[in-house]
């Protein structure tokens, strides 16, 4: 065990890479989640179809297959990605598809009466979305987003398979160097668990702030409805 802990610089570097990949992946995922999620609430069939195509395709793709494809297959037709770019892209696009479903579900879960009140006050369509619907939808998005963030963090372990020095990759090297298989994997499992717990705390804090902004205790049922629409991995 002590051999493993002696390798702490390597563990720390790996942890830092894992955290960075999580942050980049989440930032990337947020873009398609919002764009395609809002497209899914459009009145126009063609725009909604965009949402369906994106969501069905990337939800249907296995992250690791996508990652291999970007990393091994695409360079052969002239698109070369760095390992990190391939990793972040595949994680972000995949989680973004689930995120889009969360956004769509949450926006649709905001009562229609709110939209009508916004029409009655003569807000423009853009203002209705930005000032009335989205702020209320965010409260419904946060809990499922929290779950997705943890799924994303877990997903970063896959990058070790395309030679990125994340926590799992470094663990393999420590294992090879020390022969301490059980201890190495136990230690990094605990590190992953700790990261997940911290992410959860951060999301809960955000949830509380949004609930305060909306002046209410979390509305369990509405939140469940939204998370049902885009449940983790669902």
């Amino acid at each position: 065990m002590s051999d493993v802990l002696d390798a702490y610089p390597q563990l720390l570097r790996g942890t830092w890479t894992t955290v960075q990949l999580t942050v980049y992946g989440a930032a990337l995922a947020l873009v398609p989640a919002l764009v395609f999620g809002l497209a899914g609430t459009s009145r126009h069939t063609a725009v909604r179809a965009l949402n369906r195509v994106y969501v069905e395709f990337f939800r249907g793709t296995a992250t690791l297959v996508l990652m291999y494809w970007l990393f091994y297959a695409l360079p052969l037709v002239g698109f070369r990605f760095t390992p990190v770019a391939a990793a972040v892209l595949s994680l972000g696009l995949n989680v973004g598809a689930y995120g889009a479903e969360v956004v769509r579900g949450a926006v649709n879960a905001v009562p229609r009466a709110q939209y009508e009140a916004a029409v009655a006050l003569n807000f423009t369509p853009w203002q209705r979305m930005l000032r009335v619907t989205l702020p209320q939808a965010v409260a419904l998005m946060l809990p499922p987003f929290g779950n997705l963030l943890i799924e994303l963090m877990k997903g970063t372990a896959l990058v070790s398979l395309i030679t990125i020095g994340d926590l799992t990759f470094n663990a393999q090297r420590i294992r090879a160097a020390t022969g301490e298989t059980a201890a190495t994997f136990l230690v990094i499992l605990v590190v992953y668990f700790a990261i997940a717990q911290m992410l959860q705390l951060a999301v809960r804090y955000a949830e509380r702030r949004v609930d305060r902004m909306l002046g209410r205790r979390p509305d369990r049922r509405a939140a469940a409805a939204a998370s049902g629409a885009g449940a983790v991995k669902a």
Binding site: A113, Q114, E116, A117, A118, A120, L121, V132, P135, Q136, M213, L214, G215, R216
Partner: peptide, 14 residues
Amino acid sequence: QIGMVFQQFNLFPN
């Protein structure tokens, strides 16, 4: 020119 008051008030909770 038009304003409306609703049965369920529909104040903005945010």
